[in-house]
Design a binder for these strands. Structure first.
Length: 513
RNA sequence: GGAAAGGUAGCUCAGUCGGUAGAGCAGUUGGCUUUUAACCAAUUGGUCCUGGGUUCGAAUCCCAGCCUUUCCA
């Protein structure tokens, strides 16, 4: 009975689906297509005439193309599958490159070896088609590891031409709107996204190994909390209520601390309805982890260890080199431990003058003018300092720095410092000029938490998550918490200049027409 | 939201002073049974982002719009 409504998973009701399918299967009139497309469709039809299904079926393999080339030995019977990425036609002998995500291997196709019937089918293949090869490994006279084809199986006909074989795809519109073409054409993109998959899996494994439970909390929320950001609004029809996509999972993860989950994490999407830039995508991936009885310094140790572990495992060490299109090193990030830890106020004072924190608001404004830091008239005093921090400290920080003890106004969910209640026990980890990870000693006093949220919310009282405050009244253990911006971490570790280069399908404007 | 740069063949890009729309690769045809950016010969392919305007004539100059990138907010 669980699957009673499963039909909804597969799309609209049946009658409508049929009409949709008939539209999908309708072949566009050939004369409306360009020559390149028409010729490929004709080859597809000719394959059918020869009794071959151009879209294939299950094919058992013994090896993968890239792996076979990496650990090659002669005289082995193999079955491999992949996409044709290059074709060198010598008449009755052809050489083609068969590729997978990890590499390529050369296939030698000879008319005499596969027979006239198979050769006739083979002649209808193009770069971009998926094929299976049964054959035997050998070295050519130039020493190239190769597979001599004995059987060729058509797995899928490609009806459109592939991108340039050595320039790849550079048009950002194609790169981002048709990521599959970017992945086909650009090895660098393949490597970045493979690395991202492996690193995300390793982050999960790392935390699970240390006793953290991965949980899933609501992305559809009644009150969007846990951060200061504009949410996406939506509506639940059956409940007749407006809802929001979460801007952070924090308040739900803390409910789990109340419920007795002492080590939890969530690694998934949050959504912020704000500007799109080199560093911002409206949906982004964040890790949040909470550890009962820990504090922000213990969390800093954890993050430092985790990031170094990822760098050593996947980036060849703790020196991360960023390169430009020409392959020249433009920046080197040194992750050597221990990472610097310094109070926010010391760093601001070092950048803006030792007397910064003794200045009044007017004097701070004057100093900003002298330092070339732009500020607006309506900024509060703590916001002026924050602006100085962002422009003169954050943007100039390449190697990791844990910035500790920021002003309490900036972080309403963190515990105030025991000795100075104007600051909070937190860190902001800065690497590569960007905030990678915040960490707190979590505020667990329900009354203080209410005041701090009310101060932040101002008149917008409806923004306060009463159910979260109720949960705190039942008792939340003291805990350390972290967030890690996974996309920005990936940029730092892979050398990507834009978040769009580490997000498979970044948000772009809808193309009209 | 503001500023700058860009949009030309399937891909990567030229296009001079406003005067017939170009190259490489891909494709097609022919040749070639060990090539690997294969090679040789021939050849097809264009909404020059869109819409106005100036002009005898616009890819090119002007205006508006769309999309992208970068910087700023």
């Amino acid at each position: 009975m669980i699957f009673r409504d499963a039909r909804s998973c597969f799309g609209p009701p049946r009658s409508r689906r049929l009409s949709v399918m008939s539209e999908e299967t309708a072949v566009p009139p050939v004369e409306d297509l360009g020559t390149l497309l028409r010729i490929r469709r004709e080859k597809m039809e000719q394959l059918r005439v020869l009794g071959v299904d151009p879209f294939g079926k299950r094919f058992e393999t013994t090896h993968a193309p890239g792996a076979l080339r990496d650990s090659f030995s002669e005289g082995k019977a193999v079955r491999i599958a992949g996409r044709i990425t290059a074709l060198r036609d010598m008449g009755k002998s052809n050489f083609l490159d068969l590729s997978d995500l990890n590499g390529r291997i050369q296939v030698f196709v000879n008319k005499g070896a596969i027979g006239d019937g198979a050769w006739e089918i083979y002649k209808h293949l193009d770069i971009g088609d998926w094929i299976g090869i049964a054959g035997e490994t050998f070295l050519t006279k130039t020493g190239e590891p190769s597979v001599k084809a004995l059987e060729v199986t058509v797995l899928s006909k490609s009806l459109r031409p592939m991108p340039s074989k050595w320039h790849g795809i550079v048009d950002p519109q194609i790169k981002y709107r048709q990521r599959y073409l970017d992945l086909i054409a650009n090895e660098r993109s393949r490597e970045i996204f493979k690395k991202r998959c492996l690193m995300v899996a390793e982050i999960r494994r790392y935390l699970q190994e240390r006793g953290f439970f991965e949980v899933e909390t609501p992305m559809l929320q009644d009150v969007p909390g846990g951060a200061a950001a504009q949410p996406f609004q939506t509506h639940h029809n059956a409940l007749g209520m407006d809802m929001f996509l979460r801007i952070a999972p924090e308040l739900y993860l803390k409910r789990l601390l109340v419920g007795g989950f002492e080590k939890v994490f969530e690694l998934n999407r949050s959504f912020r309805n704000e500007g799109i830039s080199r560093r911002h995508n409206p949906e982004f991936t964040m890790l949040e982890a909470y550890w009962a009885y820990a504090d922000f310094e213990k969390m800093a140790d954890l993050v430092e260890d985790l990031v170094c572990h990822l760098a050593e495992t996947f980036c060849g060490g703790l020196r991360i080199e960023h390169r430009n299109a020409e392959g020249e090193v433009t920046k080197t990030i040194n992750l050597s431990r221990p990472w610097k830890r310094a109070p926010y106020r010391d760093l601001v004072a070092a950048a803006a003058g030792a007397d910064w924190w003794t200045l009044d608001a007017a004097a701070k404004r004057t100093r900003c003018e002298q330092l070339g830091v732009e500020i607006s008239a309506e900024m509060e005093e703590y916001e002026i300092s924050q602006q100085v921090f962002e422009k003169l400290v954050e943007e100039k920080t390449i190697d990791p720095v844990f910035v500790t003890h920021v002003s309490k106004e900036l972080v309403p969910l963190a515990k105030q410092n025991a000795a100075d209640d104007s600051i909070v026990d937190v860190y902001e980890l800065i690497i590569n000029g960007a905030e990678i990870s915040p960490g707190y000693s979590e505020l667990n006093d329900p009354d203080v938490q209410r005041r701090r949220l009310e101060e932040q919310a101002g008149e917008e009282v409806q923004k306060i998550d009463e159910d979260f405050l109720l949960a705190l009244e039942y008792g939340m253990p003291p805990a350390g918490g972290i967030g890690i911006g996974i996309d920005r971490l990936m940029m730092m570790l892979t050398g990507a200049e834009s978040i769009r280069d580490v997000v498979l399908f970044p948000q772009l404007k809808r193309r009209e027409g």
